[in-house]
Simulated scan of single mutants.
Amino acid sequence: MQDRTTADDALESVTDPAAFSDREAIDEVTDSFPHPEQDHCEADYAGRAIVGVTNEDGETLIIVDRDAGAAVLPSPKVETDGDYVAAAKEEVADVAGIDVEITGVERVRHAEHVVEGEDDPFDETTHLVFSATPADEYTEASVDGDESWTVEWHDTVPADLLDDDAPPSDDVQLFVD
């Protein structure tokens, strides 16, 4: 477990996600993301900072869009040469009103972006999946405004909202049984 951090040794900054590649205790995967064209959601970004926030009751913070039938972890894009930890913390604060401590890296995903119907990637970004805990004793998640999505705590997989073949579902399942 030397390659991971604990709540007593929170991560403060990560600007080089490659530093976590090939570490035995960290899951490393490569996934393909098809797009209609080369202009895609992560174009001109380094990747994503995906955050599995688990509270003291063992529940995980999940963003739920029932209209689209989707459940995902907070996952902001990270600017080229940006700080993955800072992006992760800012996103959770923005979407849920919760300050978090990043406690470890669970997964490094090499995201290969391909044009639909083609085999060769035209771009690659890196997704770091972090584990995190609320910085305060207990904070209820809150969403400002009238949004089509909600932020909810789950202790089981919201199976009706997960696409079993999609990387975002794999990330949720890292934290929720």
Rank of each mutant, 00 (worst) to 15 (best):
V14F: 01
V14R: 06
T15C: 00
T15I: 02
D16A: 05
P17M: 01
P17I: 05
A18V: 06
A19Y: 05
D22V: 01
D22G: 12
D22S: 12
R23P: 00
A25Y: 00
A25P: 00
E28L: 01
T30Q: 08
T30R: 09
T30L: 01
T30N: 03
D31C: 08
F33I: 07
F33L: 10
P34V: 06
H35F: 10
H35I: 08
P36K: 10
E37H: 07
Q38I: 09
D39P: 02
H40I: 08
H40P: 11
C41D: 13
A43V: 14
A43N: 12
A43T: 15
D44A: 14
D44S: 14
D44P: 13
A46K: 13
G47L: 14
G47Y: 15
V51T: 15
G52S: 02
G52Q: 05
G52I: 05
V53W: 03
V53K: 04
T54D: 01
T54R: 11
N55Q: 04
E56N: 12
E56S: 14
G58M: 09
E59R: 15
E59S: 15
T60K: 13
L61G: 02
L61W: 09
L61A: 06
I62A: 08
I63M: 09
V64F: 11
V64L: 13
R66Y: 03
R66G: 03
D67K: 15
D67W: 11
A68R: 14
A68Y: 02
G69I: 08
G69S: 03
V72S: 07
V72M: 05
P74S: 14
P74N: 05
P74M: 06
S75T: 00
P76R: 10
P76L: 05
V78N: 07
E79V: 04
E79D: 13
D81H: 07
D81K: 11
D81T: 08
D83G: 04
Y84N: 06
Y84S: 02
A86F: 00
A86S: 07
A87F: 03
A87S: 12
K89D: 01
K89M: 08
E90F: 08
E90W: 07
